[in-house]
Amino acid sequence: MNIDRTIFFARVRASLYRHGLSAAAAAGHASLLARWQDDPENGDRRHLAYILATAFHETGARMQPIEENLSYSETGLLKTFPRRFSPAEARHYARKPEPIANRAYAGRMGNGDEKSGDGWRFRGRGLVQITGRANYRTFGIEETPDAALQPKRAIDILFSGMRLGRFTGCRLSDFFSAARADWIGARRIINGTDRAADVGRYARLYARALALDV
């Protein structure tokens, strides 16, 4: 199913990149479109719209694989990880990315304790920010976590994770079908309900760029 890229990029620039679309972000979009068009299972463009919206959100609109920024302030730590840091601990850990990761992600997602270093080793990376030893193991890169930053591997993780439910057990087909279009609920594919309305709005804009009437 061909996508008119001239129309697509014109609409994306007008709706999502009003202050300019960088060459790197344009290349990232092009790579995702190419992967979609080469895939024999590319029937529902709403799936593509939500994939694009997820990458847009998770990378801060860069559309390139990135590493998680863990340089939190004291206030940021208390807001983002309220169960992991007391006020005194937040003051101590503030602006120390590696110790922050090791404490914030200790003992969950397959990670060891804080001293194991797993939190930092398996911090968020890629187009969808996979996090935790168990998730890296799922995608076969437990021994080479930086592989999540390789463009092709990052795209593979994004597509297979969202289509097959490899992140949370939820998949695109659970939310988009002949009888359903749940643009907000689809955030459960990645991360529960965090920023669900925002990602749903981005996805609708991408759907319109793909010539869908939503």
Rank of each mutant, 00 (worst) to 15 (best):
N135M: 14
P40Y: 09
R187P: 11
A134F: 06
Y105W: 05
F56D: 10
D39R: 13
E41A: 15
I189N: 08
E89L: 10
F159T: 08
A53F: 01
A104R: 04
I157R: 04
R95I: 01
R35H: 14
L149W: 10
R18C: 10
A88P: 08
L52P: 06
L52M: 12
R153N: 06
W36Y: 12
T75H: 13
S73Q: 07
G169F: 00
R188S: 13
V214K: 05
A211D: 15
A178I: 07
S71L: 12
S173Q: 13
R91P: 00
G60P: 11
Q150G: 04
L77Y: 08
Y105Q: 02
T138L: 02
A34K: 15
D156V: 06
I184Y: 05
H57S: 03
A147V: 05
I157E: 07
G165K: 02
A186V: 12
T75I: 13
T6G: 15
R103G: 03
L77E: 11
A61K: 15
G140S: 00
Y202Q: 11
Q129W: 00
K96C: 02
R35T: 14
A90L: 01
N69G: 10
E142G: 11
T6Y: 06
V12N: 07
A147E: 12
T193M: 11
A178V: 12
N2G: 04
G192Y: 08
R163W: 10
L21C: 06
N69Q: 09
Q64H: 09
L158S: 07
A101G: 03
D156A: 12
N111Y: 05
V199T: 11
L52V: 07
P97Q: 06
I157Q: 02
I155Q: 15
A27Q: 14
A106I: 03
A104H: 00
G20Y: 09
A203V: 05
A178Q: 14
R103S: 02
Q64F: 04
Q150D: 15
E58W: 02
A94V: 05
R204W: 00
R195E: 13
H92C: 01
Y136T: 04
I190R: 10
Q150K: 14
R195D: 14
L70Q: 08
L32F: 06
F85R: 04
G112S: 04
R180S: 09
T80S: 12
P145V: 06
Y93V: 01
M109P: 09
G124W: 05
A154F: 02
E74I: 01
L70C: 02
H47V: 01
E143V: 03
R195T: 13
T80D: 05
N2C: 00
S31C: 11
L16M: 10
A207Y: 08
R84F: 08
L52R: 01
D38M: 12
E89K: 06
D198I: 15
Y202N: 10
D44I: 05
K96R: 15
I51L: 15
E41M: 11
Y50V: 04
H47K: 07
F122G: 00
D182K: 05
L33I: 14
Q37T: 14
I51R: 03
M109I: 00
